[in-house]
Amino acid sequence: MSDFVVVIPARYGSTRLPGKPLLEIAGLPMVQHVWQRARESAAARVIIATDDARIEQAARAFGAEVVMTRADHHSGTDRLAEVAAVLGLPTQTLVVNVQGDEPLLPASAIDCVAERLAADAGASVATLAEAIEDVDTLFNPNVVKVVVDNTGRALYFSRAPIPWDRNAWKTQPPVRIESEGWLRHIGLYAYRAGFLADYVTWSPAPIEALEQLEQLRALYQGHRIQVATVTEPYPGGVDTPEDLERVRQVFL
């Protein structure tokens, strides 16, 4: 497959976990674990993107390539676009966005999303999904669902339980899932660098504002998103103190 670049956006500010990228796990800062997972992938280059000198210093100390970015970005996608511009990446370069709070992320998932985008020349973005097997997950608005077509391209993303089973659910919510067809979106993305340059020029789409889902901006603008379905459980990231303790236990 084509060479690809991994960019790890790492912000110091966090409401629930201030300084999250530098929190220690098994004697190393969290962002170092993420960087090590990315280095195990087939990426030609792994870059940490930050606006904080403390993260920059820590990352350079363990040997990472660092790009300093502006502090006013609204999202990690905006930060990726700046990195692609600073590095002068050709428009067809594949850029994988790996969140800086996923120290358990398998390198195989990074390779999978990059390979999926490389295989579809008509797609601008690729991402991952996994099967939903329980009703609580399906009806949880904090879990994003995705519907795909027969080529694996996304039709829509929503916080609602899509697709809606009109006949089975017309009177009351289900107590169990009776068939396949529901997918949980996993927020690992691969982009073409040219798409990133365009993305930051677009205003938020109406559907994006309603759902609070950035990926809907791409669909609204007519871009294609490929979705690869993973077959192994995808490890969660670190958003809360409880998550941090859970991950620390894994490394014991």
Rank of each mutant, 00 (worst) to 15 (best):
A205C: 12
Y191R: 13
G194F: 12
R192E: 06
A209C: 12
T201D: 10
I207G: 06
G194Q: 13
D165V: 07
P174H: 02
G187S: 12
Q212S: 15
R176T: 02
A168R: 14
P163S: 14
A190H: 08
P204R: 14
F195N: 03
R176F: 01
P163W: 12
F195K: 04
V200F: 05
W182R: 03
L183W: 01
S158V: 06
W182I: 00
P173V: 01
R192K: 11
L188F: 10
V175E: 07
Y189H: 10
K170A: 09
A168Q: 12
L188P: 08
L213V: 09
Y189E: 00
A197K: 13
G181L: 01
S158M: 09
E180Y: 08
Q212W: 13
Q172E: 06
G181C: 02
I207F: 06
S158T: 08
I207C: 13
Y199G: 04
P161Y: 08
Y199I: 08
Q172M: 06
A168S: 14
Q215P: 00
G181V: 03
R166K: 00
P163K: 09
S158D: 07
P173L: 07
L213W: 04
S203C: 13
P174M: 01
L213R: 05
L196A: 02
E180V: 07
A190K: 05
L183I: 00
L188K: 04
W182D: 02
Q215M: 05
A205Q: 12
R192W: 08
Q172R: 14
A205D: 09
A160W: 11
L183M: 01
V175F: 06
D165E: 15
F195P: 03
V200Q: 04
P161W: 11
W169V: 05
R176I: 00
D198F: 02
Y191T: 05
E178Q: 08
I162T: 07
L183Y: 05
N167E: 12
P206T: 14
P204E: 11
R176V: 00
A197V: 05
N167Q: 10
W202G: 09
W169I: 00
E178P: 00
L183A: 01
P204W: 10
